[in-house]
């Protein structure tokens, strides 16, 4: 199996995208999961449903709305144009924004479940012992939820690597900018380069399997849902 420069470009771009998205998502998802795990607000079900949307929506729907929403007439597009960034479709930044939506539940849910498993009790005990909210979070909740964070990071990364439909809609297939591995494989199939498609697909298959193997061997964090790429 020989990898061409185009293959390597696509692989590197995919790793870059998935890493950036995972890092940003961990930062967004942690406060969100904390709120979802412990709030008694009526808004909880609304936010949970919104977060879980990418699990059930076809990527074409998400991609289509992102294309329109980030376009010159869309709310996101008008915002980015006002800020002087320009339009996001067909750019790497656009892929990052799209992937944040797309992989959100895969990061929020494991962290939220980990927080829920820890529960209120250890936090209350820490509070009685005089720990500040920040201290309780860092010294009690975080260490007890480490597995959840690890699952979230791995799943967020892997799910972004497997992203296809959304990127097909908003990417524009630009080498080293938006042509990620899944798109590159698709191109190879369309060009009837089955041998090349085969080796890259096998690579992705092995990667995905080992990712899941790692996640499932880290039980007891239960995984919910499962979406198509």
């Amino acid at each position: 199996m020989t990898l061409t420069t185009a293959d390597m470009d696509a692989i590197w771009l995919t790793i870059k995208l998935a890493s950036i998205v995972t890092l940003i998502l961990l930062m967004i998802a942690t406060p969100l999961a904390l709120w979802l795990a412990f709030t008694r607000s009526h808004l909880r079900v609304w936010v949970s449903s919104f977060v879980a949307l990418p699990l059930v929506l076809p990527p074409t729907v998400l991609g289509f709305y992102l294309l329109i929403g980030m376009g010159p007439e869309g709310p996101l597009g008008q915002l980015t144009q006002t800020l002087g960034i320009g339009l996001l479709p067909f750019t790497f930044a656009g892929l990052v924004i799209a992937s944040l939506f797309y992989s959100l539940p895969f990061v929020v849910q494991p962290i939220q479940q980990a927080f829920e498993q820890v529960g209120q009790r250890p936090l209350e005990v820490a509070a009685i012992m005089g720990a500040s909210p920040m201290k309780r979070f860092i010294s009690v909740l975080l260490p007890l939820s480490m597995r959840g964070f690890l699952s979230a990071a791995i799943l967020g990364f892997a799910h972004t690597v497997g992203e296809f439909g959304v990127i097909l809609m908003i990417g524009g297939n630009i080498p080293s900018e938006t042509r990620v591995l899944s798109i590159h494989i698709y191109d190879q199939v369309e060009m009837l380069n089955y041998a090349q498609a085969h080796s890259l697909s096998a690579l992705l298959l092995l990667f995905s399997f080992f990712v899941l193997l790692i996640v499932y061997s880290m039980q007891p964090v239960r995984l919910t849902g499962g979406a198509r790429a």
Partner: peptide
């Protein structure tokens, strides 16, 4: 230059203003 999957998508890219 942006490349669409097919001509329909190329048309969508223009029609949506992107």
């Amino acid at each position: 230059l942006v490349m669409a999957e097919n001509v329909s998508q190329a048309l969508l890219y223009v029609a949506s203003g992107n």
